[in-house]
Design a protein around this nucleic acid. Sequence first.
DNA 1: TATTGTTATACTCTATAACTATA
DNA 2: TATAGTTATAGAGTATAACAATA
Lengths: 139, 139
Amino acid sequence: MGNKEQDACRAWQLLIKFYFVHRRELPAAETDCDLSPAQCHVLHLIEPGQPIPMGRLAELLSCDASNVTGLIDRLESRGLVQRRPLEHDRRVKALDLTPAGLHVRAQLLRHMTRRPLPLSRLSPEDQRTLVRILQRLVE
Amino acid sequence: MGNKEQDACRAWQLLIKFYFVHRRELPAAETDCDLSPAQCHVLHLIEPGQPIPMGRLAELLSCDASNVTGLIDRLESRGLVQRRPLEHDRRVKALDLTPAGLHVRAQLLRHMTRRPLPLSRLSPEDQRTLVRILQRLVE
DNA sequence: TATTGTTATACTCTATAACTATA
DNA sequence: TATAGTTATAGAGTATAACAATA
């Protein structure tokens, strides 16, 4: 029967609810770092030492490329991000974190993972189980 | 020891990652319904038959009250939401869904729960376990 | 006087369309 | 001609501060 479907659907609904409930907690971490949600997302996506083309970033953000221009303009003017044209194709501009950007990104990740409060309601076994299941979901 | 802390922290990080990965999938459901993310959030929060004061909505959205004014202006001009002053305290304006709003909200929830795809990777047992654990998290 | 919501203002985020530079 | 990114424009989302109406 469709029990498996039902469980998957129910889990999906719960994850969405969790998403909504906590989408209002994450911004606290973001404003702690003086970043807008979009800027936070960008910093999260630019992995240290792995320059990423602007177009690829637009894909990951699911937004228009024109958007990325302004987003990066602001981060660059704050000294957190650098544009550099690729040697073999000068149309492409690769983004990388500056030292200051690295620092803010690390701070952001610390702040975002600072409050696992609702999770402490779970038993140790459930916490381990949740970790195992989620790892499979996001891999 | 700190194992419990570690598991809670790890689970939190994974949920955040899940949040980021899927924050770009949910907007598809939102634009299907021709709603912005914020409008989607509002419709999600106004439960059918349970009028909610504007200030309470600002709390739930974790945003300034002045924001809610514009947000509701736009939804009201589209005929999805109604403002009504409470009889016993006419400062307070309670929000309720119109019939059209009810319809769009139901459509939105359907679209949002339409794709439990990554969840189908999990075994039936894991799906049930995930449901049980998440229920405790969002209750 | 205190509270609820609105208005005015300014900035960020977002998409569309037209454009520039490079390939 | 096609692609990567930018610019111009317009509308939505957001916060702060000053305001109006009600309590």
